[in-house]
């Protein structure tokens, strides 16, 4: 069985407020003072794929990333987690393309890599948080699509998956070659790689794919050609006007807290 996991490298979502700033020209976060990390949902996706491989055996996992040079770190980490192959689709554009373009590039790259029994993406990324790449990818590849998946089993017909819904979950049967987006659950926290695997990951080759390789014309990719582009990006002002409840003792403080809660409740 061949599994493909699409991962994305993003600005560390835990970046302290002080280190977060905006590149006004590119209209994206300035990466000078920030770490780049693998998007957590992509790690959940990889973990889900690894668990599927663990349960069925005899499978290979390819990890693909459309990103900058630095994304090699994310791919190496995926290899350390025991993905079999890694492919970096080099983004040497001056801007970060939107979800539709990203999916288009990924789809071309995936077609060049061959066919896969299941394609994984994270449900959304911790930077722009669009949550659309998986859907666009399925449309590009013209394959079935199911988002918010947190559990996958192999069946005779394809796969049985669990999808999270607003109020619970649903189980679906999906055919092979579908695209699923993975969401977090208590059993797909990314595994910790073994040290030897980390060391080995540095000896593995990462396949590099350029726009030329995919016959995509770079000059046609620019913010104006994207379907969505940022026109403004700013750090919102937050005013703090919290009233800290003070009191002689804890009991008095809790009394006041109860009063305030009842006050709001009475307006309902």
């Amino acid at each position: 069985m061949k599994l493909l996991v699409c991962i994305k490298q993003i600005l560390d979502p835990e970046i302290p407020v002080r280190d977060f700033s905006i590149d006004r020209e590119k209209l994206e976060a300035d990466s000078a003072n920030a770490n780049q990390v693998t998007n957590i949902f992509c790690e959940n996706a990889l973990e889900t794929a690894l668990q599927l491989r663990d349960s069925v055996g005899e499978s290979s996992i390819t990890v693909i990333c459309f990103g900058r040079e630095s994304a090699e770190d994310s791919l190496r980490k995926a290899l350390a987690m025991k993905a079999d192959e890694a492919c970096l689709v080099m983004n040497d554009l001056n801007h970060t393309p939107d979800s539709a373009t990203t999916a288009h590039v990924l789809a071309s790259a995936i077609e060049s890599l061959g066919s896969f029994d299941l394609i994984f993406t994270g449900r959304e990324s911790g930077d722009w948080g669009n949550g659309q790449t998986g859907a666009y990818l399925a449309e590009e590849l013209k394959v079935p699509y199911l988002p918010f998946v947190d559990d996958i089993k192999q069946t005779d017909k394809g796969f049985e998956v669990r999808r999270q819904t607003e109020s619970g979950w649903e189980r679906y049967g999906i055919p092979a070659s579908s695209v699923v987006t993975i969401t977090n659950s208590d059993h797909n926290l990314p595994r910790i790689p073994k040290t030897r695997d980390i060391m080995m990951s540095h000896r593995k080759t990462i396949t590099r794919v350029s726009f030329e390789d995919l016959k995509i014309r770079k000059d046609e990719l620019n913010p104006q050609s994207d379907s969505v582009r940022p026109v403004k990006l700013f750090v919102p002002e937050k005013e703090s006007a919290c009233e800290f409840i003070e009191g002689e003792n804890l009991n008095a403080k809790i009394d006041q807290l109860a009063d305030k809660i009842m006050e709001i409740r009475s307006t309902l």
């Binding site: 905006i22 930077d127 750090v235």
Partner: peptide, 10 residues
């Protein structure tokens, strides 16, 4: 966007 650290107009 950016986990609530910024606001974007798209």
């Amino acid at each position: 966007v950016y986990g609530g650290k910024a606001t974007a107009v798209m």
